[in-house]
Computed example of a mutant assay.
Amino acid sequence: MTRAAAEPVSPIYIGAFDTPILQGRPSSWTTTECLGPFVLRQVPYGIRYLHATMRAVRELPGRPLETMLLTATLGPLRIDPCAGSEVELVLGPRDWSQPPVLFAVPGLEMLAEASPRPVFKRMSSGFK
């Protein structure tokens, strides 16, 4: 279950990682368009850390709408083959205690692979 003080204006990205540090690909992941129940399929057994992120809009009196990044971290969690697990991820503004988050952009990897690499020419410094 995901909860937050604001409604998402982006998909909610949820992933299971081997460590509390967000690096590499998650071992299992999902996205959802709204707060509430979610399912992570085929999460490997053992210790996992769940991370979630989304963008939301906050309205303050007398100020323009502000887009903010909300995150949640949960773990360590023991994933066991004999027990189902229900968790609650409460997304909120980031603070100093949370690991850095790179906001995922779907399809970015495919765009990076398809784009031509820049060609650099070796230039002389003028010194011999």
Rank of each mutant, 00 (worst) to 15 (best):
M1T: 13
M1C: 10
T2W: 00
T2C: 05
R3P: 03
A4F: 02
A4D: 03
A4H: 02
E7I: 03
P8E: 04
V9Q: 10
V9G: 06
S10Q: 05
I12N: 01
I12R: 02
I12Y: 00
I12V: 02
Y13L: 06
F17K: 01
F17V: 06
D18P: 12
T19N: 13
I21R: 14
L22Q: 11
L22K: 11
L22P: 00
L22H: 07
Q23S: 10
Q23V: 08
G24V: 07
R25H: 10
P26E: 01
S27D: 14
S28P: 01
W29N: 08
T30P: 03
T32I: 12
E33S: 11
L35W: 05
F38I: 02
F38P: 10
R41K: 11
R41E: 15
R41D: 11
Q42N: 13
P44K: 06
P44T: 08
Y45S: 12
G46Q: 08
G46L: 01
I47K: 13
R48F: 14
R48H: 03
L50E: 00
L50A: 01
L50G: 00
L50Y: 06
H51C: 15
T53I: 12
M54F: 02
M54P: 05
R55Q: 07
R58D: 11
R58V: 10
E59C: 15
P61C: 03
G62H: 04
G62Q: 04
R63C: 10
R63K: 11
P64H: 06
L65H: 14
L65M: 14
E66W: 04
E66M: 06
E66F: 00
L70Q: 03
A72L: 03
T73P: 01
T73M: 13
L74K: 00
G75N: 02
G75A: 04
R78Y: 14
P81G: 03
C82F: 15
A83H: 13
G84E: 08
G84K: 03
E86N: 08
E86W: 13
E88K: 12
E88W: 02
V90W: 03
G92A: 05
G92P: 02
R94I: 04
R94K: 11
P100I: 00
P100Q: 12
P100F: 01
V101D: 05
L102W: 14
V105A: 14
P106F: 12
L108N: 04
L108A: 11
L108I: 09
L111R: 14
A112N: 15
E113R: 08
A114N: 09
A114V: 08
A114H: 05
S115G: 12
R117W: 12
P118D: 05
F120H: 05
F120W: 15
F120K: 02
R122C: 13
R122I: 09
S124K: 07
S124P: 03
S124M: 06
S125A: 07
